[in-house]
Amino acid sequence: MIRRLLLPLLAALLFTGAATAQSAHAAGYRYWSFWDRDGARWVYATQGPATARPSDGDVQGFRFAVSEDSQDADQPRGTADFAAICADTPAQKGKKRVALLLDFGTPADAPSGETPPPARTACARVSPDATTAEALAAVAKPLRYDTNALLCAISGYPEQGCGEQVSANTEHKKTKKHTDDGPSLGLIGGVAVIVLLGAAALWQARRRA
């Protein structure tokens, strides 16, 4: 009787452990993420660069990386101060200035055969109604978009690809969130429960004998 109860429980725990291990190898996407600077922190943009219309004095950032979603996305690195970025671009009547931080990512995030350029900043001086995409085009050509208006490349990087899926357990490995060394704690705990239940069943059987 005890054995019939333990076998389904063990099977369920093994299935849970396998599912947990599989989730650790979830696929990500290689793309340019778009950010707004809010005080001292970066906030993932709620609009795309083609529709966002920054104000004079705004700071916006772009980061090329592999990530699963917006919560997993890597933020732009480097100085994000409007006064510093636009120090050599004086204000002009009838224009607005937008500070941009362009982070081309790390070699681990780069497509095969490509090397990311160093991160840089730029100050775009554009018309008051210009979108972020127009500000970006003023200082970081060539840009590349796909047929769905997804931003694929800034300053020609990367040369190929656009938002392609990347397997986390083959081409790209993120170390900040997942570690794949050994079984999961959930599986270990489940096996421990099975061992304890088995020991209890054996004790009961000997007692009855």
Rank of each mutant, 00 (worst) to 15 (best):
A209T: 04
I188G: 15
G161P: 01
L102D: 06
P49L: 04
G39S: 13
I188V: 15
G198R: 08
D88P: 10
A91V: 03
W42H: 15
S23R: 13
R77M: 05
N169M: 02
G48Q: 08
W42F: 14
F15V: 15
R144P: 01
D36M: 04
G113C: 02
P128L: 03
D180W: 00
G163Q: 05
G182Y: 10
R207E: 03
L10M: 12
F104Q: 11
A149E: 08
A91K: 07
L100K: 04
H178K: 00
A153V: 04
S184G: 08
K96V: 02
V195E: 02
L10P: 09
E134P: 06
V43D: 07
L151E: 09
A52K: 14
A138I: 00
D56S: 08
P54R: 14
D36H: 11
A27F: 05
Y44V: 12
R77N: 10
T121Q: 07
W35F: 10
V126Q: 07
E159P: 04
A21E: 03
Q165N: 15
F64C: 04
T20E: 06
E114M: 08
G61N: 09
T51W: 05
Q75F: 14
W203M: 09
D181N: 09
V195N: 08
P117H: 06
A137W: 02
A12N: 10
